[in-house]
Each structure stands twice: as structure tokens, then as C-alpha cells.
């Protein structure tokens, strides 16, 4: 889980041009936190590539923060 969180943070930092050290597992994935819908879409595409999984678009609205996305990815990896 820790490595999943770290990897997501790397991808998110790149997407929103933020220093990764400013991000953490509870960093929100909302426009208020600087993550616009287009950034979220990019993060989803990047995560699919990085973890070799498929993320269903209808699930994306449940990704409140890095942690909930990490949980989803962990579950998807378990299903493989």
C-alpha cells in the first residue's frame, strides 16, 4: 500500500506540477486542492499504465484523495 501511495504521489506531482514532498496520502483530488477534472483524468490514465490495471470511469468520483485511489488500485491488483 505504501509503495502504491508513493507512486500515485509521484504521478500526481507531475500532473499538477507540484513538489511531491508537499503531497501525502490524504491529499485531496478535488479542484479546491488544485486537481482539476482534466488533471484527474490524466492521473487515471497514468495510473492505468503504471499499475497495468483498468480503472472504470464510473468509479472515479469515489477517489476523494490519494488514499482512496490507492485502496482502489490495491483491490484491482488483488483481483488480477
Amino acid at each position: 500500500m505504501d509503495t502504491t501511495v508513493e507512486r500515485i504521489i509521484e504521478l500526481l506531482a507531475e500532473t499538477i506540477s507540484e513538489d511531491a514532498s508537499h503531497l501525502h496520502e490524504r491529499s485531496a483530488l478535488t479542484p479546491e486542492a488544485g486537481v482539476e477534472p482534466i488533471d484527474l483524468a490524466k492521473l487515471v490514465i497514468d495510473c492505468e499504465k503504471a499499475f497495468t490495471i483498468q480503472i472504470h470511469d464510473e468509479d472515479v468520483h469515489t477517489f476523494r484523495d490519494v488514499w482512496t485511489l490507492a485502496e482502489y488500485i490495491t483491490a484491482a491488483l488483488d483481483d488480477i
Binding site: 477534472p37 482534466i38 490524466k42 487515471v44 472504470h56 464510473e58 468509479d59 468520483h61
Partner: peptide
């Protein structure tokens, strides 16, 4: 230069509306 992200964003919005 970000057509894939843009297309995915539209799809996410449509899918969110559908699932709700």
C-alpha cells in the same frame, strides 16, 4: 496536445452522471 486526457475527462463526467 492533451486529447486523450480531455476525452477521458468527458467520459468520466458522463459515467459519473450515469452511475449516480
Amino acid at each position: 496536445y492533451e486529447f486523450a486526457e480531455y476525452a477521458r475527462m468527458i467520459s468520466i463526467a458522463e459515467s459519473t452522471e450515469l452511475i449516480l
